[in-house]
Design a protein around this nucleic acid. Structure first.
Ligand SMILES: Nc1nc2c(ncn2[C@H]2C[C@H](O)[C@@H](COP(=O)(O)OP(=O)(O)OP(=O)(O)O)O2)c(=O)[nH]1
Ligand SMILES: [Mn+2]
Ligand SMILES: [Mn+2]
Length: 509
DNA sequence: TCACCATGCCAC
DNA sequence: AAACGTGGCATGGTGA
């Protein structure tokens, strides 16, 4: 965060770096507040208050009482220095120094460059699309009001529930509940749709409204007037598993699933004369599961270059090898694979698939029978948490879980968290290392002015690249990502090139 | 006007 | 909310 303020003023920051927020994050990735003040309170037993608390009633820092301001600032300077020693010792103690020095500190510079570069979007295209959505939403709204016989606020789940279950009198037996009443979420509307055509319209309305409000209208507003591009924040100290998050705007959840959603991805474009390159790890957490569990069946599957997401999809949807599998169907397979390994219930699986619970339960049982070591691995995870109080990734990143909690009433939840963290976290470690190596490599080859990272989407890297350098960069990216670590199974990376982000996903070479 | 919670849904 | 996990953001609804 602060590094960008320095960089914006054209100051260079050079390694080795030490960032107190990042250090404190590694020591406790679940922690919500990692401000200098709160970290000092924890590790230096200081008593000072946060910026916001100090400001209090004053308008801003410059209006603050001089004594208070001086107090605050002196403490900050002292903190940064004293804290460094303390945190370093703690990192060593907990065997987190390697992750800190080899991954997080070098990554800080990479992320900062990515934020400064930003990504170009086609605002004209989005503005056009917005108008079209406006029309379609208006029509849907009219249709819905006509079908239910009255007007109400379609964006209020509470009012909608009232209309559906009180006014129309749709029976609520077996329908999902929220804390405050009856749910109207997509799974509910999908259940209603065959009997009540209005539900189909509501689903359509919900989807389009979501796309319009969250992306189509919001993104153009956030384009920087200075660079003409969209700059996200990559947050390095938020996600408890070690992933990075993206905010203001979040560019890690740009739509892809639906046809209308795809039109938004299409608006992420390369500068004239450039191309976008996308590189996405294939089945990454399943591969990591194969490695960590040592399951022979799973290891063999990946050595044979099989696609488990597709196989699962064909199996549950009953689609023969002779019929091509749609993207949508493969996504179903993916959801089932990750759902089952991370502890999904037969009930939920049954609901998602629209099959009887007995069938779903049977499927889950068969699944673990097919990969016998997976169950054993998960027992070992449980043991590790009990014994050590934390679980870790292949690079030693740790997530500390309270033993009392593991045994207590949130035991189920804690168990699933513990199952997920090593896999999601290892995937995060791997792509972070790849980003660092890639940046180094591009720098060395003097390519940075023609090829640079612009986004990271958990297991995918998006680069912008001069057309003339595409073939070379493609090779480098794939090579680095696939070989950043050597596991029991090969890591495979799907790469694609295009004028826009959607094309890179359709390209897949 | 703001913060907060709840619901819902986009992505990985 | 009936045992997939990790996020961020929009809206409505409420209260200060
Ligand atoms: N628990 C859970 N994790 C998910 C889910 N979707 C994605 N992930 C995690 C696990 C994936 O390995 C990782 C990257 O997502 P991707 O969409 O790239 O899927 P994946 O790499 O498995 O397959 P693919 O790239 O399509 O070959 O994010 C999900 O529905 N549940
Ligand atoms: Mn992937
Ligand atoms: Mn991906």
């Amino acid at each position: 965060y602060d590094i960008n303020i320095l960089r914006r003023h054209s100051l260079n920051v050079s390694p080795p770096l030490f960032d107190t927020m990042v250090a404190a994050y590694l020591l406790n990735p679940e922690s919500l507040s990692l401000t200098l003040k709160s970290v000092s309170r924890t590790y230096l037993s200081q008593t000072g208050r946060d910026y916001g608390e100090v400001i209090g009633e004053a308008e801003d820092f410059s209006h603050l009482d001089v004594t208070k301001a001086a107090e605050y600032s002196c403490e900050d300077s002292l903190s940064a220095l004293n804290l460094k020693e303390k945190l370093l010792a703690e990192l060593k103690n907990k065997e987190l120094l390697e992750v800190f020095e080899k991954i997080e500190m070098p990554l800080l510079l990479v992320l900062s460059s990515m934020e400064l570069k930003g990504v170009k979007i086609d605002t004209a295209l989005l503005k056009e699309f917005s108008k079209e959505l406006e029309e379609r939403l208006k029509q849907l709204e009219k249709d819905i009001y006509r079908e239910v016989g009255e007007e109400f606020n379609l964006n209020s789940p509470k009012q909608l529930a009232h209309i559906l279950f009180d006014v129309l009198g749709i029976p609520t037996k077996g329908i999902k509940r929220t804390k405050t009443g009856i749910s109207t979420d997509v799974s509910v509307l999908e259940t209603l749709a065959p009997r009540y055509p209005v539900a189909e319209k509501l689903l359509q309305y919900r989807m389009l409204f979501k796309l319009k409000s969250t992306y189509v209208d919001a993104l153009p507003k956030q384009v920087s007037p200075i660079t003409g591009r969209l700059h996200t924040n990559f947050n390095q100290t938020i996600v408890a598993t070690g992933r990075i998050s993206s905010s203001d705007p979040n560019l890690q959840n740009i739509p892809l699933r639906t046809e209308d959603g795809k039109r938004i991805r299409k608006a992420f474009i390369a500068e004239e004369g450039n191309k976008l390159i996308s590189a996405d790890y294939s089945q990454i957490e399943l591969r990591l599961l194969a490695h960590l569990s040592q399951d022979e069946q799973l290891i063999k599957a990946f050595k044979d270059r099989r696609d488990i997401h597709s196989e699962t999809a064909r199996e549950v949807l009953g689609i023969p090898k002779s019929t091509p599998l749609s993207e949508e169907d493969r996504r179903v397979g993916k959801t089932i694979n990750y759902g089952i390994i991370y502890g999904m219930s037969g009930f939920r699986l049954a609901r998602d698939l629209g099959v009887p619970v007995s069938v779903a339960n049977e499927f889950i049982e068969q699944y673990f029978k097919k990969f016998p070591r997976v169950k054993e691995y998960f027992s070992s995870v449980k043991e590790a948490v009990k014994k050590k109080g934390y679980i870790e990734t292949i690079f030693g990143r740790k997530r500390f879980l309270k033993y009392v909690k593991v045994e207590g009433k949130d035991a189920g939840f804690l168990r699933r968290v513990a199952l997920n963290a090593p896999l999601q976290g290892s995937a995060a470690d791997i792509i972070k290392l790849a980003m660092i190596q890639l940046q180094d490599c591009l720098t060395e080859k003097n390519l940075l002015s023609e090829a640079y990272l612009i986004l990271q989407i958990h297991d995918e890297l998006l680069l912008e690249c001069a057309e003339a350098k595409v073939e070379e960069v493609l090779q480098v990216v794939k090579e680095i990502m696939e070989n950043v670590v050597s596991l029991q199974v090969p890591l495979e990376v799907d790469v694609g090139v295009g004028r826009n982000w959607l094309e890179t996903k359709e390209d897949r070479r």
